[in-house]
Every structure is written in structure tokens, then in C-alpha cells.
Design a protein around this nucleic acid. Sequence first.
DNA 1: AGCAACTATTAACGCGCGTTAGTAATGATT
DNA 2: AATCATTACTAACGCGCGTTAATAGTTGCT
Lengths: 363, 363
Amino acid sequence: MSRRVTSQDVADLAGVSRTTVSFVLNDVHRFSIRPETAEKVRLAAQQLAYYPNASAKALASNQTKNIGLIISRAPQYIASDPFLPQILSGLLDALKENSQGLLLEWVEPGQQLQSYLELTRAHHIDGIILMTPRLDDPGLRALEEADIPVVVMGYIPGSSLHSVDVDNITAAETAVNHLLELGHRSIACITNAALPYTSATQRLEGYKSALQKAGVEFIPELVREADFDIQSGYRQMKSLIESAQEFTAVFVASDNVALGAYSALGEAGLSIPEDVSVVGFDDIPLASFVTPTLTSVTVSGQEIAIESYNLLTRLMRGEMPEFRSVTLPTRLIPRESSREIGRRGKRGAEKKSAKFVSCFNDQ
Amino acid sequence: MSRRVTSQDVADLAGVSRTTVSFVLNDVHRFSIRPETAEKVRLAAQQLAYYPNASAKALASNQTKNIGLIISRAPQYIASDPFLPQILSGLLDALKENSQGLLLEWVEPGQQLQSYLELTRAHHIDGIILMTPRLDDPGLRALEEADIPVVVMGYIPGSSLHSVDVDNITAAETAVNHLLELGHRSIACITNAALPYTSATQRLEGYKSALQKAGVEFIPELVREADFDIQSGYRQMKSLIESAQEFTAVFVASDNVALGAYSALGEAGLSIPEDVSVVGFDDIPLASFVTPTLTSVTVSGQEIAIESYNLLTRLMRGEMPEFRSVTLPTRLIPRESSREIGRRGKRGAEKKSAKFVSCFNDQ
DNA sequence: AGCAACTATTAACGCGCGTTAGTAATGATT
DNA sequence: AATCATTACTAACGCGCGTTAATAGTTGCT
């Protein structure tokens, strides 16, 4: 309950003015200060365990030392996201060095405009990183016009906002090409999210493009839209299986969703990769630990986070007025879940391989 | 670049004083205000798209409207945590209703004291939720003495801090009892984290206790310490397999770690549950989608988050001076990964079941 | 001695808001 | 007519800090 320690207290103890304290503790070299004085001040500050009040500092300096990470997705979709921790990990690490804070926000679709306005105007934060943007986000214009640094994780065509992203289209093409090279011709696709999310659209784009370049017909019935979480992957794969469509491989644009697909395939008595090859996307840590290990496209959440943060930092320092969009590299990691189309490649419920089925039927 | 809109602007436009604006927008009923006046003010505020400056508000009112979630773990361990998103999801949801913000912080072991002091003194936040506390955290005393509301997710024996946790000991006992009831007598244990983390110690405690009550000898060589992530689960399980110790079941105190164990078992040619039964902890969403589905103990991250937030809210309102510690229920969810000790229960590298091996050797 | 050119320090203002003490106007009561 | 309550509002202070303009003290040079 002891009164709060202010810079005045430090000044009194050190026998100097509050201004001097401020200069010393903020390393203001414009006004020179005798080393002994500085030392006295530092000692007094330490002795009193003085920590400058964040709000006062923010008000006076017009800098909050916080950046905001905005997730435009409802909490229930956040709960099972294996990718978010990577982003957070990268961001927190980078922020620590500059002793900045991370303010987490989610905005519900429909409330974007107002939320963004409040965020930028209320000035809780110095800069914004926008995650999982939607093409149809009505608040993006407001962000473009707001005079606060913004970096988008992901690509918004036609937007003037700075962005960091992987080349989703090319990456998806590479993934599908991998399947094509293995001899697959009937390749299904399950998106990572609903199509208003740009990454989903782009990855689907890459899928189509790869097929086209290989001269393979695009069959809309082989495409399903998932919704971030495992359940949706399970559902959509089940839907694919139940449809009469034939396919020997599937490109699932999210590892998380792919794991749901694994489950549905197993339940239907289909073996991976004997009956169906699977390629995922994101290369989450788990990908190399599931059975069979999952072929995937590396996307380092940490890297995206760090790159976004670096870009944001430069914007906050007032550098770089010109437009810039960073594209990070991806790499296909072939693992066990994809293999050459085999002799037993024709699928059919009656030809179930015994290998994985047992686990589902025994108990 | 347009100047910031202040409450003075709103006052001018509405033709009243700044004070009146403040009263209207903050719903201060102590001073009555004519409805028409209030309406004028509200209209003006909306017209100017006025959002009160957060820092100024915080400084004047001594309330930041932010709470801090503190993770005492290094970022690399955050990256693959499947439990964190659940916590965040729950917290974000609850916070939204009170239009509060969430400030994320990690403190590195060794820096706790200073970090906590800064957090509490700098007053960036109104309240603290402390995740994954360590028994040996030297900063806890500082938190106890600081006059800021604190809720700990987890249990710290002997601490006066309010806390929310599941009954780790009982839950672990239940998990191990489940294995005992299935006839297992040689049960290994892999902890979820290093023992300074309280949950790890407690779950190990529950494991020992269950064995003791069943009259089964505790064999230290059957215990391994993992470290949050999948890799550590893989390593520790490998270590167990390579040791000469016999076991027919394993209690892994974290689903995430258990998935690593899955991988190591598969690689060694051991089938789950034919050769080794596995019980996890946390019931992450993935648990019901892996092959075989993982028997686990439900711990709802969302619930823990919401309960912690509720407790914190009451503390921040100044209620409840008395000590309180909330314990949330857990439930064992039997799935495919655990079954009665079988005919083929004796393990040995030469008796590998072909089922899972194929995936590792074929490509 | 006299003036300039530093160096070291501080008084004082403003950031935008919440809030207390006080004023002015109106109606009710003696 | 004078007093008192009530209503509707405002002037003015303070939150704790950063920062500018100004002030005292010191040295160097002619």
C-alpha cells in the first residue's frame, strides 16, 4: 500500500531535479550531464526500485511501447490453432529485445471497422500486426488511412498495407507437383479455411494452377473447404470419401486440417500412403511425429513473426515510406505420407489395408 | 496526419464543458445531466469519431484496462504448446465482454524478480495471470507483496496467491489407476516438464501415489522428465525403450509429449496398445484424432482461463480479501491407446508388430 | 578585466483525461 | 422576501512524465 515511487522521489534522494533524472534514465545526450551526477541518479533509482509509470510515459512521449497483434477470427477457432504459438513465440522473442509489449486482440468478423478505429485512435499501441486477414474485411481501408504503422501477415491484393507472407500459390503448386510427379492424377484438395481468407484462396489457386500446367482436369467435386480446425478436416475428408469421387491423393492446405483428414481416412479403412497420399501445409512440429509422418510445406511461424516485427519496427521509426511486401521462402519436406501411386492404389472400401484399421476397430 | 480528437473538441462541438463530456461518456450518474445535453454530447462524440486516449485515461483514472498474462517459459517452449491457444481463446473471449485488453509477457527463468517488479510498478496492467509457475520462482514473494491482483494458473504450495488449477495429483492417480485396472503392473512415467514446474511434480506425485495404493513397487528407472515439447517426448520414450526396463504401459503427463512418445514407440516397432498402453494428460483437441486415439485426462484450458479471469476480476473490484483457490474437475477419457494387458503384452524388440513399422521403412 | 563559448542544471509547460469543489439557476419552503 | 434544497453544469487541479527555454557556473581567449 506504500505510495508509488515517482521520479520526483528519485530526484529528491539524488539531490537533483526531476528533469535531470529523466535525462539520465532515458539516456538523453543532447544535454550533457556530469558522470558523477548520473551515477548518483542511477543509484537513487535502484535504491528506491523506481520504475517509471507506463501510462504517464506513454502520455508524455506519445509512445506506448506496445504493439498489437490482431486476430480476425473467433476464439473457438483460436483454441486449436497449432500455428499461433509459433507466431507468438517469434514475436515475444523479438519484442523482448526492445522491451516492448504485445497486446493481443481478436476482432469478430463484422466488427472490424469499429475495432480498428478504436485501436488506432485510442492509441493503446504504437503499431499493428494483422493476422489471418480476410479479403472481405471492411476495416482494411480504415487501417490504410490511419496514421499508425501496420503490417499484415498474409497478402491482401490491391491493398497498400505492408505485408509479410509466404508465396502461397507457388508453395501449393510445389506440393501438388510433388503428387503429380509421384504419378497421381486424381488429386483432391481440402482448403485450410473458408475462401474469404486470402491464404485459402491462394493455396487453392496453386492447386488449380499445378493441375492445369500438368494437363490434368480440374474437378470441382474434389475440392472441399475446411475451417482451421481438426474437426473440419475430419468432416471434409469424410465428405470426400462418401462422395463417389475417385482420388489417390489429397492436398490439404493445413497440417492441422490434414490430421483430421488422417483420422477420417483411417476410420474409412484407407491407408496412408498405400491408398491415399497426403500432403499438408505449414509443417507444424507435429508433422514429423505423426504416423505416418506428414509430407508438408515448411512455413516458419517464427520467421514470419520476426520478419513482420522487423518491418513494423522500421515503419515505427518512420523509415520506408515506399511500399514493401516481404515474401518468405517455403520448402517441400517429403515424408512418409506421400508415395508413388502403387499397385494397390485403386481405392475402395472393400480393399482396406489391415494395417491402420485395427486401431479403430479393436476397442 | 489530422490532429487527434480530444474530449475538448467534443465539448466544443456540443457546446458544453469537457467535464460534462466526461460525465456523459463514462456514465457518471452522481451528477445528474439533462437527457438532451447527454444526447448532444453523444452525437458530437460520434460525429467526430472520438475515442478517448487510453494512456491519458489510464493516467488519470489509475486503471489501464489491461491484464497481463505472464508465461514463465522461454519462447522456444511456447512455440509448440498446443495448450496455450486454449488458454488464450478462453481469456480473449472473457476479456472482450469487459472490453479489456490482454498483454502477453514471457519472463526468462532467472529474471523473474526484476520482471515482476517492473510489471507491477510500471503499472502497464491492472492485474496479473501467471501461467506455468515454477516452484523455485524467486519472484513470487514480490508478487505476494505487490498491491496488484494476481491469479496463478497452477498451484504453488505455501503461497498466499490466489490460484486456479486442476487437481493434478488426483487426476494423475486416476490415469494410473485406469492402467492398473487394465492389469498393467509395469507402468512407466514421462513427466510433462521439468520438476521445478509444479504441475510436473504433482502429476508425478499422483503416479507414485496410485502405485503405492495398489501395492506396486515404484521403480525410479521407469520415470523420465520431458520438457513440454514433442521432441522431448520422443527422446524420453526412446530412452525408456533403450533402457533394459520392462513396461507394458506408460503414463505421459502431457498429450503433446505423448505424441512424441507415440513416434518413438512406432519407430521401435512397438504397437499401441498391443505392446504398450499409453495414457496422456490435457486432452488436447488432437487426442481424439491421432491413431490410435489417445486416452487422456480432460483439462479444459478455456475453463481454466475463464475461471482465472473471473477470480481476477473479483480481486480487481476489491472483493474477496480472503484466500481462495479454485480447483477444476478433470475426467479420464478412455480411448484406443489403452487396453487390457494382452497376450502379446510382453515387449521386446524382436517381437515387433508389423503394423506400424511399415510406415517407417517403406520410403 | 571583459566577453564569448561552453557545460551542467532546472523551472515550467503540456500530454488528455478524471474528478472535486464550487457556481449559477430554478423551484420549494418558511 | 429570505432561506434552503435541488438540478445542471463548469473551473481548476492533479495524475507522472518528457521536453523546451532559460539560468547559473565555468573555462578560454583577447
